[in-house]
Design a protein around this nucleic acid. Structure first.
Lengths: 150, 150
DNA sequence: ATTATTTTGTTGTAAATGCAACAAAATTTT
DNA sequence: AAAATTTTGTTGCATTTACAACAAAATAAT
């Protein structure tokens, strides 16, 4: 069976590392861009869902979001019906930075797919999407304290 | 252009998270398994190369390796010709744990490829390999302090 | 041969990460 | 309706992560 996990790990760490270095320019520290980008694209999302989207621990997300708010990139708004949740929205400052984050992401994507035909790009996306769906089941299972048997 | 980076990020974080939880059983803390597996498979490797293989900061690798040594999973051996480098080898304790790490990795790989034909698995591996090659060029470039233009 | 550069390793410091444990609101079960 | 469970959010604590800065050995350039 082909070892795809290590390739994925290497790619993910390399690109994350690059992004973290490049986004220091905007006063974003390690990991923050992940949250900010998604809040801009999904205004009103709550932090619990954000953690699930990103696949990161709830408490890690909580603190990253807290910091983004303190820095003025996003704001938390109370919901009218549900007193427990806090909806997240980008501020003007956040919206100003977003295009740069998007551009960087697009560029990294382009670099990653260098030498790929349009069809190959389509293929890898579809296959990765399926892998992700497969993997997130186990992630939620294990995160909830369950034990995988193998 | 298809957004493959986010899928890759999600997959990588989810699987890393699972591994970290599962390997606590062997007293391995966050990230340590990455280094131990590779030292077992590449005995005599030096930490600088290990950091490059894994795509992690040199100093992070240094500390992870230091801890693995303290815990008795690996040992550092001086080289006879080159006084600067320290070759890394698994100890018996390290070699005893390795099969469990391997088994977990194989299982996660299997989960990731659930529903894939043999050919699809082959395809995604080859495409990922190419992505990795593309991406590591930029990683080394940026890590060395250079600036990407885009 | 000497000088300059690269490679390899370390340590100080600041920050993110994630587990454990808690609390309160919301939802589901009985 | 009351009780049990799930969802959502927070804080304390220990650990990893990585940048900066340094040092020494090895290699390359002059």
């Amino acid at each position: 069976m082909k070892e795809i996990l290590r390739e994925i790990g290497m790619i993910a760490r390399a690109l994350d590392s690059i992004s973290n270095i490049e986004f220091k320019e905007f006063d974003l520290t390690k990991g923050q861009y992940l949250y900010l980008v998604r809040i801009c694209e999904n205004p009103g999302v709550i932090q619990e869902k954000l953690a699930e989207m990103i696949k990161v621990d709830r408490t890690t997300a909580a603190r990253a979001i807290q910091k983004l708010e303190t820095q003025g990139f996003i704001e938390k708004k109370d919901d009218l019906e549900n007193k427990k949740i806090k909806k997240l929205y980008p501020t003007n400052k956040g919206l100003e930075v977003y295009p740069f984050l998007k551009r960087e992401g697009d560029y990294s994507n382009k670099v990653a797919l260098t030498g790929f035909t349009h069809e190959e790009a389509e293929t890898i996306y579809n296959l990765l999407h399926r892998v992700r769906k497969n993997v997130e089941v186990d992630w939620e299972f294990v995160k909830k304290g369950n034990r995988r048997e193998y």
